[in-house]
Write a protein that binds this DNA or RNA. Sequence first.
DNA 1: GACAAAATTCAACAAATGTTGAAAACTGGG
DNA 2: CCCAGTTTTCAACATTTGTTGAATTTTGTC
Lengths: 215, 215
Amino acid sequence: MNNAQKRSKKERILDAAEELFALHGFDGVTIRQIAAQAQVDVALASYHFGKKRELFDAVFLRRAEILNEERLEALLKCQSESGTEGPSVEKIIEAFLRPLEMEQENADPGWKHYLALVAYINNSPIWGKELMSKYFDPLVTRFIEALKKALPGAKEEDIYWCYHNLSGALTLTLAQTGRIDKLSKGLCKSTDFRAAYDHMIPFIAAGFQRVCTKP
Amino acid sequence: MNNAQKRSKKERILDAAEELFALHGFDGVTIRQIAAQAQVDVALASYHFGKKRELFDAVFLRRAEILNEERLEALLKCQSESGTEGPSVEKIIEAFLRPLEMEQENADPGWKHYLALVAYINNSPIWGKELMSKYFDPLVTRFIEALKKALPGAKEEDIYWCYHNLSGALTLTLAQTGRIDKLSKGLCKSTDFRAAYDHMIPFIAAGFQRVCTKP
DNA sequence: GACAAAATTCAACAAATGTTGAAAACTGGG
DNA sequence: CCCAGTTTTCAACATTTGTTGAATTTTGTC
């Protein structure tokens, strides 16, 4: 049996949709392209998922809960390992980001595609608010609460703006546009997730501390 | 004469395409929608710009050079105002970012739409490399040279990764997704560019200094 | 193996898409 | 006014789009 056919046809449709939506966006992909890549009849996508938009949502939801659990677990772990004053800013950022790196390095390339799709959604003026808020904000709020504790006296507004910067830096990393490869003439690679996060974490932590600490 | 009809039809097509492409991406917009918003016949877009993709490029190019000039001017000004050791990291970041804020606050809303389009392109795995590299990398390289001087002893690789984080934070700001509005329960607003940049500049500067300074 | 249910294929649909060619309207010098 | 050149409109085209309903095959259960 062909390697591409080990998974069920339903899963193969999700896999194909995940990769293509991440690359070209919702409107840049046709059901027929998805069906072709999944080696499946066109009508099967509608049968399993309904409208195109519902397929899109199904792709988004498939890994969203898994991700939320992993990140929550990372937060709880770093909190339990710290004393009563709570974890440091850097530890919190690390708990927020490392689970993503882990999945991007997962043997299943679907995770890499999925996170690129999340980047597309998060950066979109029309999809961003709706989908991201609904499924990720509860978790984000928990991280922000932890950050407030680690940054006593910080203005709430400042913390949100810092989170905005964190979210942007992360989003571009997830998108894997390959632009840094070209700009740095090969010195850095979009696919080198380890390097990306190793640089991102202290970068972001320093930003929080500078902006959220009274002078 | 109607306000929407003061500009030439050719310009109105560019204006409409700019706004709609920024909102929905290249494939999410039809020539007919653009023509309708511009109050213009459908065939006129093809007559003036050729293929849909050429119209997209025309929109991108219209303001790219203007932007490059403004940012270069800002860099040269801050360099001329500093001594022989060159401007500080924060001054360089400020020169890189403030011209964008200025244009986002321009009375012409076209600039706001244009910069959201740049965000869309920069975050896209397929458009990002091609368009952004071609038209913005020469300028970016000049800023990076200035940063190298301001961060003596820093590893080149580290500077590029820091720039990557800067680019991401900026991109999300340009995209104006409105997500921070919801997350912060109205405390922060995506359209409050002044606040966004006032927080972004020290945040980014601190990140550079932490990552690119030997311990 | 019979048989109901689920999965899959096939064919077709109406609507929407980018693009074009010919006709018409407008423009500014002579 | 004339008329060449540009701009604009109109109508039409071949494709492609998402979706559906009926027919066929596969699956699991007794």
